[in-house]
Design a protein around this nucleic acid. Structure first.
Lengths: 406, 406
DNA sequence: CCAGTATGTTGTCACAGGCAACAAAACCCT
DNA sequence: AGGGTTTTGTTGCCTGTGACAACATACTGG
């Protein structure tokens, strides 16, 4: 089944150069997502001719984006050359959270080769940018010679205007209308791309995690900062007009007057709350692991009641998402995986109860599969995506060149 | 800002033929949506060379899909040839509803040149297909000689598996798991494409109606058969894995135990109900026009209370949609346009109250602009889209050849 | 060691769109 | 009215990309 309207970019005509770019891009994307692929696999899944693949791979190699290795012979016929994404091409990831700024280095092959967590306390945007820039400079100095940098991807818990990297509102951080992207770019001299954290988590899960290979995915992450959502439809990230789409935590599901962190009533985020568990378990603070453990072995009536109530609320929201998106898989992250683990039957029954049979009959519910690297990988996809979209024209920055001072 | 992941079809390589197809397709789509465009306009908005446009237009002309006329000179310089979509190329539209089967003939230029409404009462799928086939045969006989038929598009009030034209559930019609598409195809000998009615309404509004030119649109239609929704994101129709996405009427917004026509609790459809108005106004049955009139001039307290309650429910749902989709425009159709007209301030305030500022600050609310032809136009887009996607390989059927008997 | 199979390489070819030069058809100004 | 200006259509040539076929290469298996 083909698709419909087709506006915007698709409206444009295409010339020969576009074809070359498209094919280079398609190959690089496959290699990036798989890490390593043989030339024959590339030939098969691209539909292009062997000779064309040869030519394109050579060009990618000359661009320093991939390298070839002899095959570890394993079948009939001449063994095919293995094409791998270069680990000399890296992106920085930044995650600004309430309690820390985390910076990572991710290779084009999708591997997190360094990660540094710098604790802080509800930093201002200026402070967070300064911390990030300092850690990036330090990590940059440690990169192997010859390494080239694509850029910086930033995952922010809040509403991000993707086009220019302005954080419209990050309630927990207290950021309102701050141009974090430009700030960090000025401090580092590198291109910076920002997006919502949960949206990036969704992307990461699709490329390397438990939603691998799926094209229609709903992602829900519940942390100390509320509930964030990410959606991918038909292989495309849902961003909306300005990048504020996918705020699944702020979906209204009940008539309750409870308000969420953004001040909206009766929303998923207002009803499924990490703090309720902390109170019930009399924990002042807890890591997700500790909280999940508590949930799994809780046995008093009060805790059970809380678990059931929150499970029901979660089920109602998931039902709504299924009706709206008809996804193949829903990925859960954060403490709500505890609800899924403990009350799976109840959750699935509730989901069925709150959604249309046709839409829910094949949907899978899974836990997030990437753990603490998820946001690093997801954020790195932002600069990598720029590179992959335009492999031969995107400029890379040498690791060893000093960043210009602002 | 470029987009993200890119799966599926985009993964494939591209060869020269694909370029030609893409460009033919892009031109034909522009001409189809605009009706008539000059060659120079095509050159400008496609970015292709004059000589290329000339070549492509010639090919489309040879395919009989467009024709050229001399310009009505109106500026400096040599007047550009006008390229128009052929009115000799048509599609049939079918809308199966509870009280009637409506069949239309739509030209590639987007004009409804015939429409016939065949009253019936909750027909079975077999009966509806038979009625549709009969009317199509009769309309087909009246087509001008030389007219060619692309196929049939069907708009169904229910959940449609787009891939094979099976209606999974149409509650009001009482259809469950019926292969309406194949049935109608067998009776007519024409290719048949089915989709949900509201989704097609959304497409129609984007191409020819009040959402013209927008790429991120939410469409909500409230009729006697409940509330249907259609969503277009980034110029692409939201369909989900199997085509069941976009069921916006079944979004849960309240804790109420009221059930909607599909048995779900607390949903938009269960709270915003046409029948409540008919009861309050003591109408046994009414056209949308009559009902809208009643709403606009209602002045008793009970009716006002109902209007306000339903407006609040609608606002809550719209807030949820804004948080999820961050659309540029929301189009309302059916009797809820009455709520918008009468209680616009209340609706907008409620929408603001129930959504994030960043997402709602620029969203437009508009009424549907196509009236009774909306579904005819939208349904015809299904076969037209096939033609437009593959202009040089899609087979057209001559109007005058007898349809083969099953 | 040879047949069989799968893959990489090379040179040729077809074909799409770009480009430049020219022709054509309008407007504008004197 | 007529030449200058502007815009557009047409034509022929060129470039570059991927397809294709033929050949070379590298492995398995008997």
């Amino acid at each position: 089944m083909s698709n419909p309207i087709s506006h915007g970019a698709n409206m444009l005509g295409q010339n020969r150069d576009d074809v070359r770019q498209h094919n280079l891009s398609a190959l690089l994307r496959m290699i990036h997502q798989a890490g390593t692929l043989s030339r024959s696999q590339l030939t098969a899944s691209s539909g292009l001719n062997r000779s064309t693949i040869s030519d394109l791979v050579t060009e990618l190699q000359e661009l320093g984006l991939v390298f070839e290795t002899e095959a570890s012979a394993a079948g009939v016929g001449r063994p095919s050359l293995q094409v791998s994404a270069s680990d000399q091409v890296v992106a920085f990831s930044v995650n600004t959270d309430v309690d820390a700024v985390t910076v990572g280095v991710v290779t084009l092959a999708g591997e997190v080769i360094a990660k540094r967590r710098e604790p802080t306390n509800q930093p201002t945007a200026e402070k967070a940018a300064a911390i990030a820039a300092k850690v990036i400079a330090s990590l940059r100095a440690e990169l192997k010679p010859g390494t080239r940098i694509v850029g910086i991807g930033v995952a922010v818990p809040g509403q991000v205007r993707v086009a220019d990297g302005v954080i419209r509102l990050a309630p927990h951080l207290g950021w309102v209308e701050v141009p974090f992207g430009p700030m960090l770019s000025q401090l580092t001299g590198l291109p910076v791309f920002c997006d919502n954290d949960a949206s990036l988590g969704c992307v990461a899960e699709i490329i390397y995690g438990n939603a691998k290979g799926f094209s229609d995915v709903v992602f829900l992450f519940a942390g100390s900062g509320g509930i964030g959502g990410g959606v991918v439809i038909n292989g495309l990230q849902l961003r909306g007009t300005a990048g504020y789409a996918g705020e699944l935590g702020h979906v209204r599901i009940a008539s309750s007057k409870e308000k969420d962190y953004s001040g909206l009533e009766g929303t998923l985020e207002s009803l499924v709350r990490r703090n309720d568990f902390l109170e019930t378990f009399k924990l002042f603070a807890a890591t997700d692991e500790e909280l999940l453990l508590e949930i799994s072995r809780s046995n008093n009536a009060k805790a059970q009641k809380l678990i059931e109530n929150q499970t029901d609320s979660l089920a109602a929201a998931l039902g709504t998402f299924v009706n709206i998106f008809n996804p193949q898989v829903i990925i859960l992250g954060g403490f709500i995986t505890g609800l899924f683990a403990k009350e799976q039957q109840r959750l699935l029954a509730g989901l069925k109860y709150n959604s249309l049979a046709a839409a829910n009959e094949r949907v899978l519910i899974r836990e997030s599969g990437l753990g603490s690297n998820m946001l690093m990988i997801g954020a790195a996809e932002l600069p990598f995506n720029e590179l992959i979209t335009r492999p031969s024209t995107t400029a890379l920055v040498s690791a060893k060149v000093k960043a210009p001072k602002a």
